[in-house]
Design a protein around this nucleic acid. Structure first.
Lengths: 136, 136
DNA sequence: CTAACTCCTTTCATTAATAAAGTAAAACGT
DNA sequence: ACGTTTTACTTTATTAATGAAAGGAGTTAG
């Protein structure tokens, strides 16, 4: 399915997805058109889901990175799920998980005020346990 | 510092970081060179930290997405940190966090065998609580 | 009022992307 | 074993984007 060259391509594009096909080709020892065809295949097969940027949230003013374990009070999760949709700008990920809690919610906030506001709303729907990311 | 156009640029590049400057310019109502200069500024200021791809880990054969709460036995974290460096291929993120546990470790594995192997090694250095991502 | 600065557009030369054609090797069926 | 098809690549040529340079409009400061 995927050979070593494909893995190299994924590795290089993970490091820099704005490489030109020519540059990428040089890194994996192929010509531009050849590597371009491989990348198109990786896109079509869904291995490459998209191209994106890493944004420094702190420089955007979002200095608080929070991980919130969610414990739904009832088996009915819809109220929680629609609540976090209304706060989409803060949400990075919402993982449904096995184990202790039902979800792990990853968010960023500009300050404790917005975090507090968010938690106030959240507490209407679920119980939670808050962790703050200190590093990495 | 950042105006509305910059935010639009970040939004569009988050959706697709391989847009040409011309295409990006059309989306934010600027010419190619103008938007190119703004993007260069965002890079220089560190707001844009890099360009990357979203890879479908399942299609890569990594069907298990694990979140592991780490409880270090001693205050000395180095053995744990060097252990996860030896298993770098599985690791996505290692967050140092406040709250109950010391770290939240995010990893992917091809199968339970590799996960089991990893946990066996991990248990020499720390206590842990394992969660598996079911969705999103 | 002018000078300096910022932010943009336009133009143009350079460079990359893309489509098309051709080649070589591998896989397939008979 | 043979010809056919497929796959993966290179080369070439056209089209399109990038990037540098020049210039203009609006803003700020002296």
């Amino acid at each position: 399915m995927l050979d070593n060259t494909d893995m190299l391509i994924l590795h290089e594009l993970s490091k820099n997805s704005r490489l030109t096909m020519k540059e990428l080709g040089e890194k994996v020892h192929l010509t531009g058109p050849a590597v371009s065809a491989r990348v198109a295949k990786l896109e079509d097969s869904g291995v490459i889901e998209g191209y994106t940027i890493k944004v420094n949230q702190v420089k955007l003013g979002n200095s608080i990175h929070a991980l919130i374990n969610i414990y739904t009070k009832s088996a009915y999760h819809v109220p929680y799920l629609s609540f976090i949709k209304t706060s989409e700008n803060y949400i990075i990920n919402n993982y449904k998980i096995s184990g202790d809690s039902c979800y792990l919610l990853e968010c960023t906030f500009p300050s404790n005020e917005q975090l507090d506001e968010f938690l106030k709303g959240l507490s209407h729907y679920v119980n939670y346990k808050l962790s703050i990311v200190i590093n990495k």
